[in-house]
Deep mutational scan, measured.
Amino acid sequence: TTVEVQGVEYRFDNPEEAEKFAKKMAKSLNLRVELHGNKWRVE
């Protein structure tokens, strides 16, 4: 599972970890998070 934060990609073996990371990043950067296939995008 991939998390893309403002163009930078982070890879996770565990989808739940990816989701937690994406939501945490979105909250700290005041952005929103969307799931596209198996990629979380924070923008």
Score class of each variant (00 low, 15 high):
residue 1 T to E: 05
residue 1 T to H: 14
residue 1 T to I: 12
residue 1 T to V: 11
residue 1 T to R: 09
residue 1 T to S: 10
residue 1 T to M: 13
residue 2 T to Y: 14
residue 2 T to W: 14
residue 2 T to M: 12
residue 2 T to C: 15
residue 2 T to D: 05
residue 2 T to L: 14
residue 3 V to G: 00
residue 3 V to E: 00
residue 3 V to M: 01
residue 4 E to F: 12
residue 4 E to Y: 13
residue 4 E to P: 01
residue 4 E to I: 14
residue 4 E to H: 09
residue 4 E to R: 07
residue 4 E to L: 13
residue 5 V to H: 05
residue 5 V to R: 01
residue 5 V to G: 01
residue 5 V to K: 01
residue 5 V to A: 04
residue 6 Q to H: 11
residue 6 Q to V: 10
residue 6 Q to M: 13
residue 6 Q to E: 11
residue 6 Q to S: 08
residue 7 G to K: 03
residue 7 G to N: 05
residue 7 G to Q: 03
residue 7 G to F: 04
residue 8 V to P: 00
residue 8 V to A: 06
residue 8 V to H: 08
residue 8 V to L: 09
residue 8 V to F: 09
residue 9 E to V: 13
residue 9 E to T: 13
residue 10 Y to K: 02
residue 10 Y to S: 02
residue 10 Y to V: 04
residue 11 R to I: 12
residue 11 R to F: 14
residue 11 R to P: 06
residue 11 R to M: 11
residue 11 R to N: 10
residue 11 R to Q: 11
residue 11 R to W: 13
residue 12 F to W: 02
residue 12 F to M: 02
residue 12 F to S: 00
residue 12 F to Y: 04
residue 12 F to K: 01
residue 13 D to A: 10
residue 13 D to C: 15
residue 14 N to H: 09
residue 14 N to R: 09
residue 15 P to F: 10
residue 15 P to N: 07
residue 15 P to V: 06
residue 15 P to L: 05
residue 16 E to Q: 11
residue 16 E to S: 10
residue 16 E to P: 04
residue 16 E to N: 09
residue 16 E to V: 12
residue 17 E to H: 07
residue 18 A to E: 00
residue 18 A to N: 00
residue 18 A to L: 01
residue 18 A to C: 10
residue 19 E to I: 06
residue 19 E to P: 00
residue 19 E to H: 06
residue 19 E to A: 08
residue 19 E to R: 08
residue 19 E to G: 04
residue 19 E to S: 06
residue 19 E to M: 09
residue 20 K to Y: 11
residue 20 K to S: 11
residue 20 K to H: 11
residue 20 K to E: 12
residue 20 K to G: 07
residue 21 F to T: 01
residue 21 F to C: 13
residue 21 F to E: 01
residue 21 F to K: 00
residue 21 F to Q: 01
residue 21 F to A: 02
residue 21 F to P: 00
residue 22 A to Q: 00
residue 22 A to M: 02
residue 22 A to N: 00
residue 23 K to Y: 14
residue 23 K to M: 11
residue 23 K to H: 12
residue 24 K to I: 12
residue 24 K to Y: 14
residue 24 K to G: 10
residue 24 K to M: 14
residue 24 K to E: 14
residue 24 K to P: 00
residue 24 K to W: 14
residue 25 M to Y: 04
residue 25 M to R: 04
residue 25 M to H: 03
residue 25 M to C: 15
residue 25 M to G: 01
residue 25 M to F: 04
residue 25 M to K: 05
residue 25 M to W: 07
residue 25 M to A: 07
residue 26 A to V: 02
residue 26 A to H: 01
residue 26 A to L: 02
residue 27 K to N: 11
residue 27 K to W: 09
residue 27 K to H: 13
residue 27 K to R: 11
residue 27 K to L: 14
residue 27 K to T: 12
residue 27 K to G: 08
residue 28 S to E: 15
residue 28 S to N: 11
residue 29 L to Y: 04
residue 29 L to E: 03
residue 29 L to D: 03
residue 29 L to I: 02
residue 29 L to P: 03
residue 30 N to E: 05
residue 30 N to S: 05
residue 30 N to V: 04
residue 30 N to D: 07
residue 30 N to Y: 05
residue 30 N to Q: 07
residue 31 L to K: 05
residue 31 L to Q: 05
residue 31 L to S: 07
residue 31 L to E: 03
residue 32 R to S: 11
residue 32 R to A: 10
residue 32 R to M: 11
residue 33 V to H: 05
residue 33 V to G: 03
residue 33 V to R: 03
residue 33 V to W: 07
residue 33 V to T: 06
residue 34 E to L: 08
residue 34 E to V: 14
residue 34 E to A: 11
residue 34 E to W: 13
residue 34 E to C: 15
residue 35 L to A: 06
residue 35 L to P: 03
residue 35 L to Y: 14
residue 35 L to H: 10
residue 35 L to S: 05
residue 35 L to F: 14
residue 35 L to I: 07
residue 35 L to Q: 10
residue 35 L to T: 04
residue 36 H to N: 10
residue 36 H to D: 12
residue 36 H to G: 04
residue 36 H to P: 01
residue 36 H to V: 14
residue 37 G to T: 04
residue 37 G to F: 05
residue 38 N to H: 06
residue 38 N to L: 06
residue 38 N to D: 11
residue 38 N to E: 07
residue 38 N to T: 08
residue 39 K to L: 09
residue 39 K to F: 06
residue 39 K to I: 14
residue 39 K to C: 15
residue 39 K to T: 14
residue 39 K to G: 09
residue 39 K to E: 05
residue 39 K to V: 14
residue 40 W to I: 06
residue 40 W to C: 05
residue 40 W to P: 02
residue 40 W to R: 02
residue 40 W to S: 02
residue 41 R to H: 11
residue 41 R to K: 12
residue 41 R to P: 02
residue 42 V to D: 04
residue 43 E to F: 15
residue 43 E to K: 09
residue 43 E to T: 13
residue 43 E to H: 12
residue 43 E to N: 12
